[in-house]
Design a protein around this nucleic acid. Structure first.
Length: 584
RNA sequence: GCAUCCAUAGCUCAGCUGGAUAGAGCGACGGACUUCGAAUCCGUAGGUCGCAGGUUCGAAUCCUGCUGGAUGUACCA
């Protein structure tokens, strides 16, 4: 589609130049000034060229220029033009375009949509970053969905991607669940109690908060445990290792069930020490300074901010300390051209300071760091609050979604057709969830209504899956009846109805959509595109009988188009982590 | 207080570097299954694009101010 647009820009530029010289005028940088748009309604044409920008050159009204241009263009081989007020609209030659489509998106074109936009670029993407004291919640699911999808989109754009996680496994909040386990655990384990590890540990975190209400020394005891941990106390460390393992194993199971993966895990417990060393070096180099209160700080007055603590007065680390260490370790491991932190908008200040600190420390790559800031997930009743117990647990949500899907499958009596009902249910549930989370622009806050928003009708993930499943079923039938169509030929000129034409244009615009998503770091571009395409297919197969078209060649051509649509849906699903299923 | 972000249909969201009559879904109402699975399709109703200025031939989009909301402004993460 890009090629087609560029061809037209050249033609329009030549036409304008000709029209201008006929009036004794000469235009400069015509091609760059030409704007290509899509007319608001398809019957107006396929491409639109507004003439407003040339009004001053010609010293005439845009509608007149459009007329002059149409005249100077005359008859064209690649389509036709028509004036519409101040616009010159182009109608593409449908047969030619359809022909190129079928060539480009042949069967098995798994690479369709990929580009070399970011060729030779090393990009690291950090996302998820859970604490090891409780299981994942809905907020993490948005983070995971964005991180995974962005990584896939950038990879499809040619980048060398490294997905990384950072496990927040140290600090007083971790000690709280450990302490509660010591007090109330009675030696139980996730295995012995039959509870997933992260949930098991999470229960003790909740237990601590209950206990701390009864016992005023609880907080103090947790602090003491942190000191013991930092000083390397063997017993505390053993407990820490055990409980961390439980949580991480549990969280990894959630990743597995949501299709999220990482190339490398970093652990805060490994990086906070190197971060501390880095702060000390920064102190020597006078990048940081020692405050009167004994803490080591960074002066941010040069960027209009206050000061920020890099290391506590007692020498222990803060969040900033370990993030410095982590960033440096990462660049050593994988010399990235870009590092994208997928982290909530509430941490914008933190990253501003982090990036500035690294710059001041002399790391030239500090300017390659980017905070992909995303908004909160709220509930219809308001914010999720752990104190009020309104936090939506990730595993629980996935389970209840799957249950809802399963009921639907049974109600529609599709159980026999889909094969394994549970597997299919969870795949559909995942599609509902991921589509819902990714269809919203990342930077915006969003409302998650578990009851209404995750319906399986309309603008949803399951709708997309439904359309692709329908395609599969049509293609199966076509194969079954292949004898009937043996001698048929694909003839792109037969695909000339409006429904087919809209579909063809959509399929051809897929690579451009992926590029846009990569440039904007915005998976919702792909999500929206997939919905538009699925919807256009829905219209097409209602309007245009495929197997029963009454003409072998037409059927064969429509099958080729249908296959192209399936290919685009498949490739697009992968970018937004929606499982492809052939039956539902 | 200051800083950043957000405000589009009853609800949830799209709207590309400014361009033609602002679009979907849900919900409401009305149609379409003896014909490729109706988790579908088609139609109707529903909008002062928060308010007020400005730039421009032209603004939902860019600028300024205001109102409302979110977040941040920790030796928490």
């Amino acid at each position: 589609m890009d090629n087609i647009k560029n061809q037209w820009i050249k033609i329009i530029a030549e036409g304008l130049a000709k029209a201008a010289s006929a009036k004794g005028l000469s235009l400069e940088k015509i091609e760059k000034r030409i704007i290509v748009e899509h007319p608001p309604r398809p019957e107006l044409g396929d491409l639109a060229f507004p003439m407003f920008p040339f009004a001053k050159d010609f010293k005439t009204a845009p509608p007149v220029i459009a007329g002059l241009l149409a005249e100077s263009l005359g008859e064209l081989e690649i389509g036709s033009v028509k004036t519409a007020g101040p616009y010159l609209n182009a109608f593409l030659d449908r047969a030619v375009v359809a022909g190129t489509l079928l060539k480009v998106v042949g069967e098995g074109a798994d690479a369709y949509g990929e580009s070399d936009l970011l060729k030779n670029q090393k990009i690291m993407v950090e996302f998820s970053c859970p604490n090891t004291n409780k299981p994942l919640h809905l907020g993490h699911l948005r983070n995971d969905a964005i991180g995974e999808s962005i990584s896939r989109i950038l990879k499809a754009s040619g980048a060398d991607i490294r997905k990384v996680n950072l496990i927040n496994n140290r600090g007083v909040h971790i000690c709280k669940s450990m302490l509660a386990y010591q007090k109330f655990g009675e030696g139980r384990t996730p295995e012995s109690s039959g509870i997933k590890g992260d949930h098991f540990v999470g229960e003790f975190y909740v237990r601590f908060n209950q206990w701390s209400k009864e016992d005023p020394t609880a907080e103090e005891q947790a602090q003491e445990m942190l000191r013991m941990w930092e000083s390397g106390d063997a017993e505390v460390n053993k407990l820490w290792e055990t409980m961390n393992h439980w949580t991480i194993e549990g969280i990894k199971k959630t990743y597995e069930s949501t299709g999220i993966s990482f190339d490398r895990y970093y652990y805060e417990s490994d990086t906070y020490l190197s971060g501390r060393d880095e702060v000390m070096r920064g102190l020597e180099k006078a990048v940081f300074y020692k405050d009167k209160d004994g803490s080591i700080r960074l002066d941010l007055s040069d960027i209009g901010m206050d000061t920020k603590v890099m290391l506590r007065s007692d020498g222990t680390s803060v969040y900033m300390t370990q993030d410095l260490g982590t960033a440096i370790a990462r660049h050593a491991d994988f010399p990235f051209d870009r590092l994208i932190y997928v982290v909530g908008a509430e941490q914008e200040y933190h990253f501003k300071v982090l990036f500035h600190a690294l710059k001041k420390l002399g790391y030239s790559w500090a300017q390659m760091l980017y905070h992909l800031s995303y908004g909160m997930v709220n509930l219809p009743e308001g914010k999720m609050k752990s104190r009020e117990g309104t936090v939506v647990d990730a595993d629980d949500l996935l389970t209840s979604l799957s249950e809802m899907v399963k009921e639907e499958i049974l109600a529609k009596e599709r159980a026999d057709a889909v094969g394994d009902v549970d597997v299919t249910s969870s795949k559909i549930a995942l599609a509902a969830l991921h589509y819902f989370l990714l269809q919203v622009s990342p930077y915006k806050d969003m409302v998650f209504n578990p009851k209404e928003s995750l319906s399986f009708n309309g603008n949803t993930g399951p709708y997309l899956q439904y359309m692709s499943a329908r395609i599969c079923s049509i293609l199966d039938k076509y194969e079954e009846r292949s004898v009937e169509f043996e001698a048929a030929l694909v003839d792109s000129s037969l695909l000339n109805s409006d429904a087919e034409w809209e579909l063809i244009k959509l399929v051809l615009s897929f690579p451009a959509q992926v590029k846009q998503a990569a440039n904007e770091l915005n998976p919702s571009v792909v999500a929206t595109y997939l919905y538009d395409t699925a919807k256009a297919f829905g219209r097409f197969y209602h309007d245009c009988p495929i197997l029963g078209s009454g003409d072998k060649n037409l059927t064969c051509s429509r099958i080729a188009l249908t296959k192209a649509v399936l290919q685009v849906l498949k490739n697009g699903f992968d970018l937004v982590n929606i499982p492809f299923i052939s039956k539902m």
